[in-house]
């Protein structure tokens, strides 16, 4: 796994897609506790988005929430700008792309109300679900990443020239092994599209998935020791545009957890079996690959001889 390289840019314009953790389980007393409420997070996010948009008048931002019930696009700074400006003929020579008309005015209130709505819906569902059966506590990270990539794709196919797209994951919940394949696929797509994924972990533990995502795509991974000061961390690291990253130092990752999850039981494993045809990973030996259907023919049915052992990566 080669570390991702990010194309260098000569200007500091970018399109940022933010995925925002709104899993009520994380934000509830069980998780973050009273130290950092979701309301405080929303307030800090608003300031962050405002400052990011202020940096350059062509900066764009889109926000996707990731919760236990699904993901949703809740904000798109380009949408509020596009309506009137597309209908107009271009101005004289030089720049015609004005400041986002609506953007400057009401981002705070728009964002706050939309996030609040999504959050309260999620909380409601979570409480309803809590009475009967085991509630889903995992956040749809893979879903949010895929939606973000779809958004990036749409922009890349739009009129040129485009700002450099990048992604920021504000994530708190532990990795969900059942999303391993989808998440990894999203990462590889991001790598191919040269979209760096920056990660800011606000939960208690590191996320192996997102560590790998940042590593693969050339993004920055950080886990603030004090999540309640989220804004300062955001202003220090992910606010850096790709142009400035050539000149400014970024925090060094302590290490990346490269362990994979097996395809059969979705467990995180150090050692396992890898299909010699399709490279699927399994924690148990079987005679047939469940992914590609390859049948392993062996002289002796001992696991060690038939399937290759996956070497743990450092």
């Amino acid at each position: 796994m080669a570390q991702g390289t990010v194309p260098s840019r000569t200007d500091d314009v970018s399109l940022m897609v933010i995925t925002l953790e709104i899993n009520p389980y994380i934000w509830d007393k069980h998780g973050m506790g009273a130290a950092f409420s979701i309301q405080a997070m929303v307030e800090q996010m608003i300031i962050f988005v405002n400052s990011y948009l202020l940096l350059h008048h062509q900066n764009q931002v889109a926000i996707i929430t990731a919760g236990t019930e699904g993901c949703a696009y809740i904000f798109d700074s380009a949408a509020s700008k596009q309506g009137p400006s597309n209908a107009q003929p271009a101005a004289t020579n030089g720049s015609a792309n004005g400041v986002s008309e609506e953007g400057e005015r009401g981002i705070g209130s728009i964002l706050a109300s939309r996030i609040q709505r999504v959050v309260s819906e999620a909380e409601q569902k979570w409480k309803d679900g809590g009475s009967g059966g085991e509630p889903n506590r995992t956040t749809y990270l893979s879903g949010a990443l895929s939606m973000a990539l779809c958004y990036v794709q749409r922009c890349l196919r739009g009129p040129k020239p485009q700002p450099q797209p990048r992604m920021l994951c504000i994530h708190g919940s532990p990795d969900a092994p059942q999303q391993y394949i989808a998440t990894m696929n999203a990462m590889f797509s991001a790598q191919k599209l040269q979209v760096p994924i920056d990660v800011c972990m606000i939960g208690g533990q590191d996320s192996a998935f997102l560590q790998q995502a940042a590593h693969l795509t050339g993004g920055l991974y950080q886990k603030p020791p004090r999540p309640e000061a989220l804004l300062q961390y955001l202003l220090m690291v992910p606010a850096m545009d790709l142009h400035s990253r050539q000149f400014l130092l970024a925090p060094r990752p302590a290490g990346v957890d490269f362990r994979a999850s097996c395809f059969c039981h979705k467990k995180t494993i150090d050692l396992g079996f890898v299909c010699s045809v399709c490279l699927s990973i399994f924690c148990q030996f079987s005679r047939e690959c469940s992914t590609c259907g390859a049948v392993y023919t062996m002289a002796r049915p001992t696991p060690a001889a038939g399937a290759k052992r996956k070497e743990p990566e450092a």
């Binding site: 200007d11 008048h57 107009q88 101005a91 030089g94 004005g98 040129k160 020239p161």
Partner: peptide, 21 residues
């Protein structure tokens, strides 16, 4: 007008970003 909003536009010298027109 659009000209006025250009007053606050951030066109640094290094910018290769030009509107498509």
């Amino acid at each position: 007008t659009r000209l006025a909003s250009n007053l606050s536009a951030s066109l640094s010298e290094s910018s290769t970003w030009q509107p498509a027109e």
